[in-house]
């Protein structure tokens, strides 16, 4: 089974037509890969479906806007993979049913 990073990198490559080999764990989805908000919506849809989760994009965006988090925490891909792993773990623990 491929890693979470591998899965989201493949999703990004396919969704945004970005060469897979340019997508690294250290890549920032916005600053390095140039993914815009519409494409990220598409990526979120694909990630939600692939992992059976609901990425809390609005909460993350609010935290960034409020200065409580940086975009790197959510949009550097290795960090995004960690956030997804946390969401999957929470879902599997039966605690991920809310929005």
């Amino acid at each position: 089974m491929s890693s979470t990073f591998e899965q989201i990198a493949n999703i990004i490559a396919e969704t945004c037509d970005i060469p897979r080999d340019t997508i690294k764990p250290e890549s920032h989805a916005i600053d390095d890969l140039g993914i815009d908000s519409l494409d990220f919506l598409d990526i979120a849809f694909a990630i939600d479906k692939a992992f059976g989760i609901k990425m809390p994009l609005e909460k993350w965006t609010q935290e960034v806007n409020d200065g409580k988090a940086t975009t790197e925490q959510y949009f550097v891909l290795k960090n995004l993979a960690d956030r997804i792993d946390e969401l999957v773990a929470a879902k599997n623990a039966g605690a991920g049913t809310g929005s």
Binding site: L41, A44, F45, K54, M55, L57, E58
Partner: peptide, 9 residues
């Protein structure tokens, strides 16, 4: 088809 955070399909 899907209810995401701030979006729906």
């Amino acid at each position: 088809e899907h209810e995401g955070s701030g979006f729906a399909v």
